[in-house]
Structure formats: C-alpha cells, structure tokens
C-alpha cells in the first residue's frame, strides 16, 4: 500500500526580480531535495524545525498541496496531488488537515463559531442528522478542553487567541484526519496557554492515533511533543532522528550551535558569557556552494564546497556534515528510513 502522504525529492526555487530594471533575477532555493513519506496506519509525531529561511513553511505548504514543488512530487496515497480528480482531492482534504499560526486570520469575523464547525460536517457529509452533527461538535469541543456553552453562539472576536486556536483543532478533529500538519500553532499564544494547546495536539496523537507534522522554530516545544525531528538549514536537512538523540546530543555543527543558543529557564548557566561558536557572516543564497552552513561553520574545511550527503550515524540518526564521512550515506536521501523507523529506546 502506498503511504498516506509522501514527498519525493521535492525542490522549491523562488525567482526574484532584479529590482526596477529587472536586469538580474535571483534564485533562492527554499527547499532542496526533500524526501519523506508519512504512513497512514502507524501514527507518528514528527517535527520539522528550522529558523527563518530554513524552508520549513515551504515544505508544509507543498505537503498540503497549496504550493506546487518546482521539481519532485508530492503524492497522496500514491497519486500526485497536482493530478488528483475531484473525488481524490476530497479524500485528501479530509485525511490531511492544517493548523496555522495565526488563529485570528483564519475566521470570517461575521460568522459565529458554530459556522466554522458545521461547515466541514455538511461539506463532507459527516452527520446523518442535525442532532448527530451537534453531538459531534460537542465531543470535538470537549476533547480540546472547551465548554460548548461558552463557545457556541459566539463570534471569533469574543474568544481569546488560545480558544480560537483550540476551535481550529476541534474543527480538524471533526474530520477524523489521518494527519495534521501544524505550522507554528503556538507561536502567537501566551506561555500559560501554550501548554494547553500542545497537550491537545499530543492527545490527538496518543488517544486518536492521528499523525502530526509539527513545523516550528522552537526546539523546546518540539522536544515536548514529538518523537522524531528533522532540523533544516537554508532548505537542506542538517540533521534528523529521534528527538531525544538530536536535542540531547546534537551532531551537526549547526544543530549543536542552535541548541546551545537556546536560553534555558535556569539561571546561572554560562549562556550570556560563553562565546558563540559561529561566524557572523551573511552570504547571499545565490553564492552558496556546497554545504550551506559552511560559511558560518567553525569546522568548515576545503571539502565543504561539495554538498555533503546525509550520513547515517550508529544510533540511527542522520547528519549532513563531512565530519561523519566515515559513515554510510542514507540511500536516496530518503528520511522515511529514519523518521518512519520505530522509536529507538534510549
């Protein structure tokens, strides 16, 4: 059986105009050769992490079919999502749900919350009667910790940001999806409510068997909720593996510096004093050759002018760095072998 959703060697290149005269055009490789399949039957919780310009949101948008790849294919149950017929598209739209960053932008302010929840039920014919629809809404709202009497009949502006984000999750839940792609779902939510939202997502994974692709820049929340992690740098995969391995013992120089730079909520560490082990340089994307991290990397050497493959380390993770060139390269760059593998015991 083909996987639920798979991206095969997808690449996304943005072409920018050259200013007013348009003499030069620049090419930015947002995502370079990304391959990953998500199995529909075994639930998984995978983070795709990266900072601004890493390509994480572009990957999410390609997986959701809202942005076509420049090359490579994204398939839903084996069918190229650019080629799907109406029936297939409908099934895709039900199986794969999206949750975005800004819960304020998603809703039409003139419709009550009820509308947000009844629309998918009608559109996908999920209920046989209005009573059944009401029951489903009731259950979905309670699952995400909202009280129906405090939410239904209200307008979006009458709810808090955290409540609105939970409405989005309840809506996704109504459709009983196989996979939810959540792009920075808590970055606009206050700290005190963030935990509640993440707990909701985690519960959908553990109790309902829904798979997740969690897109974030925040490695602490990634560590909290996910099993596997893919760390991106400038459109390429720097490191991927079990979240415990990658966060606790990062191998790629970029991942190491990234994790070292996170200010931990524990006073008295050397965060403010320790030297940053990274060169502070800006290299235009168009001039990047070989390893994209090399210009900033303190370990960079001659060989880094060639793009390193993903080397498979002994503990089942991969890192794209010549420091590990004694190891075997990951066949076909296919992350499914790492992400799809059962969780390793630590």
């Amino acid at each position: 059986m083909p996987p639920l959703l798979d991206a095969s060697h997808v690449r996304k290149v943005y072409r920018g105009g050259g200013g007013l005269l348009g003499a030069q055009t620049t090419e930015t490789v947002a995502v370079d050769d990304f391959t990953l399949a998500i199995d529909g039957d075994t639930p998984s919780f995978t983070t795709i992490a990266g900072e601004s310009g890493s390509g994480k949101t572009t990957i999410a948008r390609m997986l959701l079919g809202v942005q076509p790849p420049t090359s490579g294919t994204v398939r839903y149950r084996g069918i190229d999502i650019g080629q799907m017929d109406k029936e297939q598209m409908r099934a895709f739209r039900q199986d794969v749900q999206a949750i975005f960053q800004d819960p304020f932008e998603v809703y039409n302010p003139f419709y009550k919350i009820d509308h947000i929840l009844t629309t998918p039920i009608e559109k996908f014919g999920l209920a046989k009667s209005p009573q059944q629809a009401a029951e489903q809404i009731d259950v979905a709202l309670r699952t995400v910790g909202l009280r129906p009497d405090e939410t239904l009949g209200r307008y979006p502006h009458q709810l808090s940001g955290g409540q609105r984000q939970r409405i989005t999750i309840a809506r996704a839940l109504l459709l009983k999806p196989k996979l939810i792609i959540a792009d920075e779902p808590v970055s606009m939510v206050d700290a005190s409510l963030r935990a509640t939202i993440l707990a909701n997502l985690h519960k959908l994974y553990t109790d309902f068997g829904i798979s997740f692709i969690y897109i974030t820049h925040d490695l602490t929340t990634a560590y909290q909720v996910s099993e596997k992690i893919v760390v991106l740098y400038h459109g390429t995969v720097a490191e991927a593996g079990g979240v415990e391995q990658v966060i606790k013992d990062p191998k790629h120089p970029y991942t190491r510096e990234l994790i070292r730079s996170i200010p931990v909520p524990d006073p008295g560490s050397a965060w403010i004093e320790e030297a940053v082990e990274e060169r502070d340089v800006e290299v235009p994307d168009a001039e990047l050759q070989g390893c994209r991290y090399a210009p900033r990397c303190v370990h960079a050497e001659e060989r880094c002018t060639r793009v390193p493959p993903l080397y498979r380390l002994d503990d089942g993770r991969v890192a794209s760095c010549v420091l590990y060139d004694k190891h075997e390269a990951l066949a076909d760059g296919d992350l499914t072998q790492i992400i799809g593998a059962p969780q390793q015991k630590d």
């Binding site: 005190s192 409510l193 935990a195 509640t196 925040d218 929340t221 560590y223 909290q224 931990v264 524990d266």
Partner: peptide
C-alpha cells in the same frame, strides 16, 4: 512550571 524545557517530554502544564 509551564515553561517547556529539555527535561520533560510528553507532559504539559498550563495555567
């Protein structure tokens, strides 16, 4: 106690 850290996985405490 609601701050996510690298100490705890799979537990969430909000306010």
């Amino acid at each position: 106690s609601s701050i996510p850290s690298f100490e705890r996985r799979g537990t969430f405490q909000g306010i």
